[in-house]
């Protein structure tokens, strides 16, 4: 019988592949939980996930329906974060906005990280002209300011969340490519790579099975740390009116619309601002903790 116990997980002599894998994960999670800041980050991210998942249940009001009779109310027991210029409850909009934010962040990560990883490992592994071409391309993208590039793409594709996601993904991958390439270079001549080549492994196999898993952890760390930046860029696009379109409750767009009342009705712009700050911070803290756990340089033998 297999039991998921502490001793089973920490067994130095696992009997199956599954046990070996589970044990490794368990050790990592334990190390992560020992870092208080990472735990704070994790709590924030889990909070965001819960809020996004149960938005319709948690939100006291509709995020879209306007109620012109209740315009610009200050925070109170009825409206904890006040209402906006159309009388919509800001708390409800922020809660629903969590879904949009989470979707943008995940989509960007899912699109840009694999592209960056692939470009970087291929460039680093083959070197020579492949490297020069791929890295030249990467440099072109890197040399352009992120927000401006995203703006240009949105302008070309038309405003909207999907296009904002594509635009941000296009600006995000070069960083991962650079990191993956740098990491690949450190072990492309390692003996374990020579060994597997001598056993007849194809280039594809070496890259996907041997090099990528080693670059994965630093990419994950970097993506987590970048999530804050992605949220900010998305908010920036929203603020400029090029991201999510009204009446979608996107946090950046909410700040933008609150801008007109910033002096008299501070809460309209400030509340979504808080949301952005807290969630960004959560990803940063978690990313830092993750780096401490995953970074092979910190690992003791």
């Amino acid at each position: 019988m297999m039991q998921l116990s502490h001793t089973w997980l920490l067994d130095e002599n696992p009997e199956t592949r599954f046990q070996a894998g589970a044990g490794q994960t368990y050790r990592m999670v334990r190390a992560l939980l020992r870092n208080p800041l990472a735990v704070v980050g994790l709590v924030i991210i889990i909070g965001l996930l819960i809020v996004a998942a149960f938005a319709p249940v948690l939100a006291p009001y509709s995020p879209i329906e306007s109620n012109l009779g209740a315009r610009l109310l200050a925070p109170s027991a009825d409206h904890w974060m006040g209402t906006d210029e159309l009388g919509r409850d800001i708390l409800s909009r922020i809660i629903h906005g969590a879904r949009i934010t989470l979707m943008i962040v995940l989509m960007v990560a899912v699109i840009s990280a694999p592209i960056g990883l692939l470009v970087g490992t291929v460039a680093g592994y083959f070197g020579g002209w492949v490297d020069r071409v791929l890295m030249g391309l990467t440099d072109v993208f890197l040399s352009m300011p992120k927000l401006i590039l995203a703006l240009a793409f949105v302008a070309a594709l038309g405003p909207g969340i999907e296009n904002a996601v594509i635009a941000i993904a296009i600006t995000a991958w070069p960083v991962y490519a650079r990191i993956a390439r740098a990491e690949t270079l450190t072990f492309r001549n390692a003996e374990f790579i020579s060994a597997i080549q001598m056993q007849g492994a194809s280039h594809t196999r070496v890259i996907f099975r041997h090099i990528m898993p080693l670059c994965l952890s630093s990419t994950i760390v970097r993506v987590t740390l970048d999530m804050a930046g992605i949220i900010l860029t998305a908010a920036g696009l929203g603020f400029l009116g090029l991201g999510a379109q009204p009446p979608l409750p996107e946090w950046g767009a909410m700040i933008s619309s609150g801008r007109a009342f910033i002096l008299d009705q501070w809460w309209v712009a400030t509340m979504p601002g808080f949301a952005i700050v807290i969630v960004s911070l959560g990803f940063c803290l978690f990313g830092d903790g993750l780096r401490d756990v995953l970074d092979p340089r910190n690992r003791t033998r």
Binding site: A190, E191, F192, S194, A195, H210, L214, P296
Partner: peptide, 11 residues
């Protein structure tokens, strides 16, 4: 290979 630490894939 010479180096038993470098010749096995660490993961």
């Amino acid at each position: 290979f010479q180096d038993p630490f470098g010749s096995l894939h660490p993961r």
